[in-house]
Simulated scan of single mutants.
Amino acid sequence: MSTDKNGFDIPDQMREFADKSVDQARKAFDDFMGATQKAVSNVEDSASVVQAGATDVNKKALTYAEEHVDAAFKFAQQLVKANNLEDMMKLQQDYLRSQMENLGEQAREFSNSATKAVQDAAKASQKK
């Protein structure tokens, strides 16, 4: 059992249980994402110009969601292994800063992809 000077106790069995739970949840999510990506891939095979733009936006959204869930699992695993409250607070601060940076970049990329999809769809409808 680990104890810090502030009396913060987490039994070793509890840490192991939490670590296994995070691993099991990550595996379930990875399986779900694999099935989702396979379904998206099947839809892509029959996509038109309009669908191609939407597919790109959808793929980005799925990728971003996967990245955020992956980061959350990593954060959870780090929290489980934290030795004290100070470490937990530092991990939380680092996680939030990283997520905000990622969200900003992803919002820009998502906006660019969505704009391109709309422009491509407009061009395709003008040709008809």
Score class of each variant (00 low, 15 high):
D70V: 00
V69L: 01
D19S: 12
T36Y: 14
K5N: 10
A117C: 03
G104H: 11
A61V: 02
F8A: 06
T63D: 15
V40R: 12
V118D: 07
T63G: 03
D120I: 00
V43H: 06
G7V: 00
G7K: 02
A114K: 07
Q93E: 14
A39D: 10
A122E: 11
A61Q: 07
F32A: 09
F8T: 02
K5G: 08
F73Q: 02
S48I: 03
D45T: 12
K128W: 04
P11W: 08
A28Q: 09
D23I: 08
M100L: 12
F29W: 15
A124F: 07
A65H: 02
A76E: 03
A28M: 13
K81L: 05
E67N: 02
Q77C: 02
S46I: 12
D70L: 01
A124T: 01
F17Q: 06
L96E: 10
G104T: 08
E16I: 11
F29S: 00
A52L: 08
R108Y: 06
E66W: 01
M89E: 08
K128C: 04
D4T: 04
A54F: 10
L79Y: 00
E101N: 09
T115G: 06
V22N: 08
E16K: 15
G104K: 14
Q92P: 00
D30A: 15
F75D: 03
A122W: 12
D70A: 12
S125A: 09
V118R: 09
S98H: 07
A117N: 04
F75M: 06
L62F: 11
T3L: 15
L91D: 02
N42Q: 13
N58F: 13
A35L: 07
E44W: 04
D45Q: 15
S48F: 05
A71P: 01
M33G: 00
K116E: 11
K38C: 00
D56Y: 05
K27N: 06
K27M: 10
D56Q: 10
E109S: 13
A82E: 01
F73E: 01
A124G: 04
G7H: 01
